[in-house]
Structures are given as C-alpha cells and as structure tokens.
C-alpha cells in the first residue's frame, strides 16, 4: 500500500508553492476526479464477475425449470440434443475428471521434480535459461496443442496400444499435462527459493546430502506455495477446452477408462456452440448449466487453495 501525503503537510506545501486559491481548488478537484476514475476502473472487474455469475445463473435457472436438479446430478446419460433428451451431467463430469487425472499424473511429478531441480540443483545461469524456455509452453495456443495431440501423440500411442481409437482421453490428458508443467514448476520453484538459506545450512551442518535437504527440508517448508501451484494446475486442466474438443471426442460417455473417447464439460460446450442453436432452447440453456458446474468446480478449488495458504503458511 502506498504511503500517502499527510493532509496537513499537503496544504502547507501547496501554500508554499505559491498556488493561488483558485488553482489550489482546481488541483484538488482534479486529483479527486482522477482518483474516482481509477477507482471505477478497478471496480469494473467486480462488475465483470457479476456479469459472469449473472449470465450463468440466469440461463441455468431456466434450464432447471425444465430439468430437476436430482436428475441433472445423478443421471448417467447426457443427450440434450436428441429427441429423447436426457440431462444427467455425470458423463461430462467423468470425462472432465479422467482427462484432468491423466494430466495431473504427468504434470505433478514432472513439474515438481523440475522445480526442485531448478531451485536446489541448477546453477543461476541454467535457471535463467531453462525457466523462460519452460514458460514458452504456456505461449503455445491450445488449438496447436490439440493438433499435436490428435495428429502426433495419438498415432504414437497407437503403436503402443494397438486398439486405441483415434479420439481418446489418454492422448488429450497427456498433452494437457505437458501444457500445465510450467504452472507447477514456476510457482513451486519460487516458493522453494523463498525458503531461507539458514534452513538449508542447518541441514547441511547436520550432515544431510543435497537430495535430503531438497526433499526433507526445503520441500516441506515451501508446501503452502507448492500446493497453491498444484491447485492452479488442477483448475487449468479442468477448464482446458480445445485440446479435449479436438483430441478426446465429443460423445458424452460415462467411463473411467482413459483409452476411450469421451466428452468433457468444455468439449460439450464447444460442440453445441458449433451448431446452429436457437436462443432460449433447452440445448442452449444446457451449456450454461454445464458451464455452471465447471465454474463451481474451479471456484471450489480456488477457495480450497485460499484456505490451504492461510492454514499452512510458513512465515520466516
């Protein structure tokens, strides 16, 4: 927070600057107007949030006037666009969770090891090169990752798993995993480097090796920051859209097998948006209901992250 000029001092200065009373008032009015304008800009982001929540809740509420919440949450079939429409969201949720789980199985171990390595093993010069290079992964548009998953990773996987279908959650999940590695690595590495040197020196003085210092001293000490990076990663993977829409298929299917094709919440929204949908139809409203589920999942994660940070924050 900025230090501010003390009101009396400011007056005194204006007087000594030789400002005439009119200019003094003008100056004060100008300051007020600017401050108000800046405040409005900052407050606009709150309006945006209200807009997001409002749009989702409003459209979903008309959806839930037609579909019971019980059916929505427990139904195992999702066919909102067919004549015999069923509105059970579980297949979409399972698709979302499976791709996310595959992604995390890649990103958490790889990202964490890379972070420990960069923070505890790498020299300053290597770190300065590797970190920005890894962050370039976040500069790749997701549609390009989708292309890569469908036309490079899937054919590669098909050599190992012979009956793998052209669309499958495994390849999409793996590519999402690679995409989110930098989220784990950057934030975790920063958290670990913030651990004071004295802790490491203490451990070394007791005869610990570098790997022991890294995993038993630095890693636990930085756990609150590291878990924050994990939570961000999970929420990125849950909300990833283009990779799954391109590579995982668009058929809603209740399965936990990653080698099968299945639609995620996001892929379903894309599928519906690509068609010509009538404004106000049940299909149109269903994407808002699905989106609301996704928003609640990521919001829940954010709150969880906030609580973890608060509970386990180690201050040195």
């Amino acid at each position: 927070m900025a230090s501010e000029p003390i009101a009396g001092e400011e007056l005194n200065l204006e007087f000594r600057l030789g400002l005439t009373p009119v200019r003094r008032v003008l100056r004060r009015v100008k300051e007020r107007v600017i401050e108000a304008a800046l405040f409005l800009a900052a407050a606009a982001s709150v309006l945006v949030t209200l807009g997001i929540v409002g749009a989702l809740v409003y459209e979903s509420s008309t959806f839930f006037a037609h579909v019971s919440i019980i059916e929505f949450l427990t139904g195992t079939q999702w066919t909102p666009l067919t004549a015999d429409a069923r509105f059970g969201v579980l297949p979409l949720v399972s698709g979302t969770l499976v791709t996310t789980a595959v992604a995390l199985a890649v990103a958490i171990p790889v990202g964490t090891i890379c972070a420990v390595w960069l923070s505890e093993y790498a020299s300053h010069r290597i770190r300065e090169v590797v970190k920005p290079a890894l962050e370039l992964l976040t500069a790749v548009p997701t549609v390009v990752f989708g292309y890569f998953a469908l036309l490079f990773v899937t054919p590669l996987l098909q050599r190992v798993i012979p009956n793998l279908p052209g669309f499958n959650m495994l390849s999409a999940g793996l590519v999402i995993g690679v995409m989110v590695i930098p989220y784990v690595t950057s934030l975790s590495e920063e958290a670990m480097r913030a651990v004071p040197l004295a802790l490491r020196e203490g451990a070394y003085a007791l005869g610990a090796t570098r790997i022991q210092v890294a995993w038993r001293v630095v890693f636990p000490a930085a756990l609150s920051g590291i878990s924050a990076s994990y939570i961000l990663t999970v929420s990125r993977a849950l909300g990833e859209t283009m990779i799954v829409a391109i590579a995982a298929g668009m058929q809603a299917k209740l399965t936990l097998n990653p080698t099968e094709p299945a639609a995620t919440i996001t892929a379903f929204i894309v599928q519906v948006s690509l068609g010509d949908l009538i404004h106000g139809s049940i299909g149109y409203q269903s994407i808002f209901a699905a989106g609301l589920v996704l928003l609640l999942m990521t919001l829940g994660l954010n709150i969880l992250g906030f609580l973890i940070q608060r509970r386990y924050r180690e201050a040195y």
């Binding site: 997001i52 859209t241 948006s273 996704l294 928003l295």
Partner: peptide, 11 residues
C-alpha cells in the same frame, strides 16, 4: 484469473 476461458465465452 482462475475462471476457465470457456466460461468467459458463455458470459
């Protein structure tokens, strides 16, 4: 900052 991009599209 944590809202998935597709949600922005719905908004």
């Amino acid at each position: 900052a944590g809202v998935p991009s597709i949600i922005w599209g719905l908004m």
